[in-house]
């Protein structure tokens, strides 16, 4: 237990030290404030947009940004230490591979969690002062929780990559490909299957396929809670036949636990 805490606090301090924490928090805060003030401008409106349109725009942006940030934060977590030689050294300490993995996850997860809560939370508070607190915390609360889960899911995915490869540059490349796949290619492919292939995908089938992409699950949860007027694309189709929020949240959590378990297994079989 002490060992896990020691690793976690080191990872957390690393995140503070190399300005990851400050940058992520600032990006999130600026993003959400900017969108809430100027979001309506795109549709010709003036002043603050509606809360649901703010959340909708935020979700669309967060779904690109958060996975990228999480992957960049964690892709070299293991392979970096392997190249430096400290991974081998750490494993000669009274520290199991599982403890190391968990410690890193807790530390880096805390960075993402706090940055999300502070960044989006501060924006929520400011929007609240501007246009009343009613509904703001409920909408932002759900958004912050799911954004955190999304970040944690991609940290776990990054660990699988970081443990599976032996070179940092390779890990970086694969991390970018994974990001590209989940935020762009996946949706395009689903859309193509939906439109291009007759009877290729039923609506229910579509939703089921989207469970294989944590980014889509994130969007489903957030957008399903909003007025559907602000939502379009594949998501709009999916929302109509969406699962309950509990099921979707469970799937989000599974997207954290399954890659972590995979990372643990790959780690156990890794040769140093």
């Amino acid at each position: 237990m002490n060992a896990i805490l020691a690793v976690a606090s080191k990872e957390f301090q690393d995140g503070l030290r190399n300005r990851w924490f400050v940058s992520i928090t600032a990006v999130f805060a600026i993003l959400s404030l900017g969108l809430s003030y100027y979001g309506a401008a795109a549709s010709g409106g003036e002043g603050g947009g509606s809360l649901s349109s703010t959340i909708a725009s935020l979700s669309s942006l967060a779904v690109f940004l958060i996975p990228l940030i999480a992957l960049l934060l964690s892709y070299d977590s293991f392979v970096g230490e392997q190249e430096a030689g400290t991974l081998l050294l750490l494993l000669t300490y009274p520290l199991s591979k599982g403890q190391l993995l968990l410690g890193k996850f807790v530390g880096q997860g805390a960075i993402i969690t706090l940055a999300t809560a502070l960044g989006f939370g501060s924006a929520a508070v400011m929007i609240g002062f501007q246009s009343g607190f009613e509904g703001v915390f409920a909408a932002f609360g759900l958004f912050i929780v799911t954004a955190t889960l999304l970040g944690l899911a991609f940290i776990s995915v990054a660990y699988v990559i970081s443990i599976a490869v032996n070179e940092k540059s390779k890990a970086a490349g694969i991390a970018l490909l994974v990001w590209f796949f989940f935020v762009l290619v996946f949706d395009l492919a689903v859309l193509a299957a939906l439109v291009g292939v007759d009877d290729g995908l039923t609506q229910q089938g579509l939703v089921n396929v989207m469970m294989f992409n944590p980014a889509d699950v994130f969007r489903l949860i957030n957008l399903a809670a909003l007025d559907s007027g602000d939502v379009n694309g594949v998501i709009a189709v999916a929302i109509n036949s969406s699962q309950s929020i509990t099921v979707l949240m469970t799937i989000m959590v599974a997207w954290i636990l399954v890659p972590l378990t995979v990372a643990r297994v790959v780690f156990a079989n890794k040769k140093l």
């Binding site: 002490n2 020691a6 690793v7 080191k10 030290r17 430096a84 030689g85 400290t86 081998l88 300490y93």
Partner: peptide
């Protein structure tokens, strides 16, 4: 170990404290 390079951005005392903590 041969060719170990410790956490570059930490100070010497921080590196050693980390390992000391892991070893109790």
């Amino acid at each position: 170990p041969e060719n170990v390079s410790f956490y570059d951005h930490l100070t010497g005392v921080e590196v050693l404290s980390y390992f000391a903590k892991l070893k109790s």
